[in-house]
Design a binder for these strands. Structure first.
Length: 580
DNA sequence: GCCGTTTTCGGCCCGACTGTTTTCAGTCG
């Protein structure tokens, strides 16, 4: 499903870059970037849309719709091909080096014929950049350093890792400076699945800025100082991750958090509203365009309110229609971590977990869960050596634990079944009927074609004993691609059979991801936010699952483990399923 | 190139830092 959207997005982004390099209209470039973002984030498959529906996507007009259709029909776009002949791909690649943008990339190509990162590195070493305007000794150094970074670090880090670093840096800064208002913003606050850099905000009067910047560059995480000023300082940690600190007057805290939380596209939307009202919004506050009187800045709520909007949760700020929804009073009341009443997918040392059932249950109780499911692996995952006897013994163990435990959490005995290539699962129905719930997941045959993957997942949904499809696309971020499957067809089957889709909260999975959730939700699918914990500590991963669910606009109504136990049990025994 | 309860033409977000340009362009977020 996502593939055509991603392809079209990449295509439009490339065209936007080429417009920038060739010195084309900056507004035209932005129009292509905006359309690229809109199509990349569009929940449905764009290759299935007609001209009219395509143009209904905000930012897509006649010209871009024509190009998208041309691409989907023929596999290429004539206008893009033509520009590509003018500018070799390697020139665009130069822009991925920090400090090099379209103008400098073009200068390098036009004046020196440099059309790849390697050629650029050689040119610097051979000192051929000497005469080029805008390339002094410092920029040459920056280029070599940037290429080095690109080659070693390459790319983004997982949300879970980034949250840890961001929390450490905020705590370190607070301790070193006594700052009260200090927080991370940016994509970490929005809970994006991967993070490119970390933005930290501090509120302090002007005269304290220098002291705070010094504390920042003095943190143990600061392996390198990238730039330092009185208002903004950037460091890199030992692994090449950039952290930016902005210091703002305390009066500007809300406007600053709003601005630095982004996304950029969300900010543009909000500013457009400001402009239409004759106002100006910056990180310092909301001002009258004429006269410059400050109208709001102290809190995010205040700034939004003055623009006629309710507060918009960070996870929604991706320009996916949240501003329009806010204007119409149609923002969803998002599910929160506190809404979760239990976890429905966890493991113990009976299979590949590290903690005993008793330890897992104790932690679930400490988390305040009303119910808690243990779902160890089933026999088809051969390495786990599961048998009927072992899992029945576990059921007995849980019964004893429940007696000791009292009413909370109520223990549910489940299993994580393996979905075979034909959609079959490990045990027959009469044995499955003994479980409180069954999660079913793909653990093998990742390479089947789209038709076969789709068929096996739909069959799993149709199994009356399967309640939840675990990590539905089986992707591991940065490690394993998702299986090729028609998710829309699977979602339809889920909605029809009353099978929930899992939002696996492990930071290296986050599966389903936000865009899939948006799509599934519209088909009436229900979700389970599960930790898939294999250790006691991993039970805390649910926060990332909740963040992902929020990015998919889910309310507690959509999430079965935010429901009271009675309602959850009715869902697990829904009509069409044999009673048990 | 897109878009419209101010507009079908004339707008399109805004500010900080760096490097080298002696007054500001380019890049970044």
């Amino acid at each position: 499903m996502a593939r055509p959207n991603e392809e079209v997005e990449a295509l439009l982004r490339e065209y936007a870059d080429l417009i920038a390099i060739t010195g084309g209209d900056a507004f035209k470039q932005r129009a292509y970037e905006r359309a690229a973002r809109a199509i990349g984030g569009h929940p449905g498959d764009v290759s299935r849309l007609g001209t009219k529906e395509l143009r209904d996507i905000s930012g897509v007009g006649k010209s871009i719709a024509d190009k998208v259709e041309e691409y989907l029909r023929t596999g290429h776009v004539a206008a893009l091909e033509e520009t590509r002949r003018e500018i070799p791909g390697g020139v665009r690649e130069l822009m991925s080096i920090p400090t090099l943008g379209p103008k400098k990339a073009l200068a390098l190509y036009r004046d020196l014929g440099i059309a790849s990162v390697d050629e650029l590195v050689s040119a610097v070493h051979e000192d051929r950049l000497g005469g080029l305007k805008g390339f002094g000794p410092k920029s040459r150094e920056n280029i070599l350093h940037g290429v080095e970074l690109m080659r070693q670090a390459h790319g983004r880090i997982l949300l879970g890792t980034a949250v840890g670093i961001a929390e450490d840096v905020v705590a370190g800064l607070r301790e070193a400076t006594g700052l009260k208002r200090c927080a991370y913003a940016g994509s970490v606050r929005r809970m994006r699945e991967t993070i490119g850099d970390i933005d930290v905000l501090a509120a302090a009067p002007e005269e304290e800025a220098e002291r705070i910047m010094a504390a920042f560059t003095g943190l143990p995480q600061a392996a390198e100082v990238v730039m330092s000023g009185r208002k903004k300082t950037s460091i890199r940690n030992a692994r090449g991750l950039q952290l930016d600190l902005r210091v703002l007057p305390p009066d500007s805290w809300g406007a600053g958090m709003l601005y630095f939380t982004g996304s950029q596209a969300h900010n543009i939307r909000v500013r457009e509203i400001a402009v239409r009202k004759g106002l100006k919004l910056s990180e310092y506050g909301l001002f009258e365009a004429k006269g410059g009187r400050k109208l709001a800045a102290r809190t995010e709520e205040e700034v939004y309110r003055r623009l006629g909007l309710p507060w918009i949760a960070p996870a929604l700020r991706e320009d996916r229609g949240e501003v329009a929804a806010a204007l119409n009073g149609e923002l969803p009341e998002l599910v929160t971590e506190r809404d979760l009443r239990g976890d429905l997918h966890t493991h113990t040392d009976l299979t590949d977990g590290l903690a005993s059932a008793a330890e897992m249950v104790a932690e679930a109780a400490a988390r305040g869960y009303a119910y808690f499911a243990i779902t160890d692996h089933a026999p088809e995952l051969y390495m786990q050596q599961m048998t009927r006897e072992k899992i029945l013994a576990q059921r007995e163990e849980l019964r004893r634990l429940a007696e000791r435990q009292g009413r909370r959490p109520r223990l549910l005995h489940g299993t994580e079944l393996n979905i075979g290539p034909e959609g079959e699962v490990d045990w027959p129905g009469d044995f499955l009927a003994g479980f409180d719930l069954c999660v079913a997941s793909v653990h093998s045959h990742f390479g089947l074609d789209r038709k076969a993957q789709t068929r096996r997942l739909i069959r799993a949904c149709e199994n009356p004993y399967v309640n939840i499809i675990g990590h539905p696309t089986t992707r591991k971020i940065g490690q394993r691609a998702p299986i090729d499957v028609d998710l829309e067809a699977v979602f339809a089957a889920c909605a029809r059979t009353g099978t929930a889709m899992e939002i696996n909260a492990h930071p290296n999975r986050l599966d389903l991801k936000d865009e899939h959730i948006l799509l599934a939700r519209r088909q009436g699918v229900k979700f389970a936010i599960d930790s898939d914990a294999h250790t006691v500590g991993e039970l805390g991963h649910t926060r990332y699952g909740v963040g992902t669910a929020q990015r998919g606009w889910l309310t507690k109504e959509d999430v079965i483990n935010a429901w009271p136990l009675g309602r959850l049990r009715r869902f697990l025994r829904a009509p069409g399923r044999p009673g048990r």
